[in-house]
Nucleic acid binder design. Sequence first.
DNA 1: GAGAGACTACTCGGATACAGTCTGTCCGAGTAAATCCGG
DNA 2: CCGGATTTACTCGGACAGACTGTATCCGAGTAGTCTCTC
Lengths: 162, 162
Amino acid sequence: MILRSHVEWALHCCAILAGLPEGKYLSTKALAEFHGLPKEYLSKALQALSQADLVDTTLGPTGGYRLAKPTSDITVLDIVEAVEGKARTFECTNIRAANPCRPAGFCDAGPCAVARVMWAADEAWRSSLRNVRLSDLVATVADDVPQDVWKSTGAWIARRAG
Amino acid sequence: MILRSHVEWALHCCAILAGLPEGKYLSTKALAEFHGLPKEYLSKALQALSQADLVDTTLGPTGGYRLAKPTSDITVLDIVEAVEGKARTFECTNIRAANPCRPAGFCDAGPCAVARVMWAADEAWRSSLRNVRLSDLVATVADDVPQDVWKSTGAWIARRAG
DNA sequence: GAGAGACTACTCGGATACAGTCTGTCCGAGTAAATCCGG
DNA sequence: CCGGATTTACTCGGACAGACTGTATCCGAGTAGTCTCTC
């Protein structure tokens, strides 16, 4: 079980879009160049964000993406689920039903014990991601990066924004 | 991202093995019949449990598997990691390194902010699974299942044990 | 009746095949800004 | 100089191909009980 690389890309792209000047858009091309990623494939991840209404997009020249909400209204879970889907990581196929000792026509009440344990862990994972807002993530990144790099990165984004 | 069906199989099989009479073994064939699963493929999941030293195995007729430790010394995480591996669900490819604004030869200290958030969630998931012991799981199953089915299932297991 | 050898039922590991997903590329349709051209 | 037509740069969506992983099956090697056969 491993998350798709789209998740990593989407998170980094959202962090970049957070630094975009008000009302401007940043193109897929710029985002791809910045991260050294294939433009066409990155575009799939961004489309997923768009479908989840996390980013706005506009067409034509000077077109591209920008965040659809304030960074404090977007959680990391929102981004992960936009790309990876909301489905649980554990799927119960109800194999207990094959137990040869069960009377014919026996019907289970509720999900099986195994599924409940796995789903609780899944919820713990989601809860952890839900507690981190994009604004928190951006603040952490800003702390990590040396100030001069942070400044020139902001300038780079502003220069490529349309 | 979805866990392999082996995880579900391994958990259910461990729950069954927990009901095995002291010192007896249960064959892959019996386990596969009980759950309605392909014997050969289920055997791969059980081999993974064996490699993780969660179950003991013996060869020959009356051979099969049994738990290697008391049920209170095995956590659900042990079983999941035996099958699914211990690798993190999020892999950081360090795409921040492609940032064109970074000075040449710039070297990052520690994992990036995105990875830290994702790894914390991963740890929350593991922690949740680590807190459930196999003995807890078996107790929950026993509560779920009607007593007569529980009894006859125990008898079925004892009959097939060797 | 006892011991050696054959037999059987099982695990283990490798080889193989197939399907589905992930990764990545390509292209046409649609759109909006910028540019060009005719009046 | 102005307004409409063309060009350009971008997103969007679908089609497609290759690699990898998950699912599943098969078979040979090894092992430990059981059975048989011989003395």
